[in-house]
């Protein structure tokens, strides 16, 4: 860990180890971000509809 270059080189397997972690992060993080955005959108939409309904009453 003392040498960041050696850490990044991953014993010569940098081309395999880092993409593996990158893909995992991209796939799971992407799904998490998408799910969260959709959740926020659903909350806002529900609030909007409920307000609309309240006004009509």
């Amino acid at each position: 860990m003392s040498d960041p270059g050696a850490f990044l080189a991953m014993g010569g397997y940098a081309g395999f180890v880092w993409p593996a972690y990158g893909i995992a992060f991209a796939a799971l993080g992407g799904l998490a971000a998408y799910s969260w955005r959709r959740y926020r959108a659903s909350v806002l939409e529900l609030e909007r509809l409920q307000q609309q309904r309240g006004r009509r009453r």
Binding site: A32, Y39, L46, Q50, Q52, R53
Partner: peptide
């Protein structure tokens, strides 16, 4: 975490759909 967030989304969307149909 993702399961709970996604389930809440689905429930919200279902409720919104019911409201819209009702309206």
């Amino acid at each position: 975490l993702l399961l709970m967030v996604r389930m809440r989304t689905a429930l919200n969307e279902r409720k919104a759909m019911a409201l819209r149909l009702n309206a």
